[in-house]
Design a protein around this nucleic acid. Sequence first.
DNA 1: CTCCAACTTGAAGCGAACTTGAGGTCACCC
DNA 2: GGGTGACCTCAAGTTCGCTTCAAGTTGGAG
Lengths: 149, 149
Amino acid sequence: MVLTIGELSARSGVAPSALRYYESIGLIESVRTTGNQRRYAQPTLRRVAFVRAAQQVGLSLDEITDALRTLPQGRTPTKADWSRLSSSWRQRLEDQIERIERLRDRLDGCIGCGCLSLKTCTLNNPGDEAALRGPGAAFLEPTGRRRGR
Amino acid sequence: MVLTIGELSARSGVAPSALRYYESIGLIESVRTTGNQRRYAQPTLRRVAFVRAAQQVGLSLDEITDALRTLPQGRTPTKADWSRLSSSWRQRLEDQIERIERLRDRLDGCIGCGCLSLKTCTLNNPGDEAALRGPGAAFLEPTGRRRGR
DNA sequence: CTCCAACTTGAAGCGAACTTGAGGTCACCC
DNA sequence: GGGTGACCTCAAGTTCGCTTCAAGTTGGAG
């Protein structure tokens, strides 16, 4: 069974134009009918779903492309394929979770102490502390940046 | 003590051009010297740090602006100010964490079962399941979307 | 065989979040 | 008071992740 672009769009929730765009950057593949229309293999559906999930957590299409490049597009991925991809992302996801938890806790802490205003709250008074160890305020952006800069 | 744009940039790790941009969209404020140069009060440093943290977790500058608008820029924020902001963001952050954990667990599950390829793994075979309850594949994008679309 | 919705391409447009550049001014050190 | 590095404005440019449009083609239902 193969899918038309309309079917893939309906089942993935991703617009046809976006799917064409994904193909143009090498994120997904299609075969063509004699009349030049795209046909997608089902694994593409999972691939697309995965792309959206990864986007949700802040990965760029470039990064996702890189990661998925380690998976075969033609054959079904093996455990080893997955294991490779998974381990490289896991740390990243953990970092992301930690970053959000830190912001959440910071926010919670602020309810109690009224900080972003109190000098005494070092946890929430990062700028001046960071200045002591040089510029960058790296405590808030611990590892790789998400986009831009 | 006030900060020049260069100092604020160095201490926050945010480029001067970005700081000017933030000001242009009303995210931060400055006073001017007689010679028309910007001078920032220290709370601005915390504000900027907060902005970057919030960006890291996927909030747009618009949303951050809205949220911070509930905080006073002139006076120091009170507990009540913080409490308001905090409670409105908390759920959002929780959702974000949950979403990432789901992706992580999905990834972990895949190591064991080789999915994104096995039909038997329903957890990781969302597309076909989603098709049963109509298009959208909403399982992966549970609540509000981050950007675009 | 005809029809029409669904597809095709390529180019242009868009919003977000900045950066870069040109041309000019300011402020602090010697 | 002179020099120079940090600052100013405004406009235009950049990247990402798409969408929209125009003009044409395909393929399946009747």
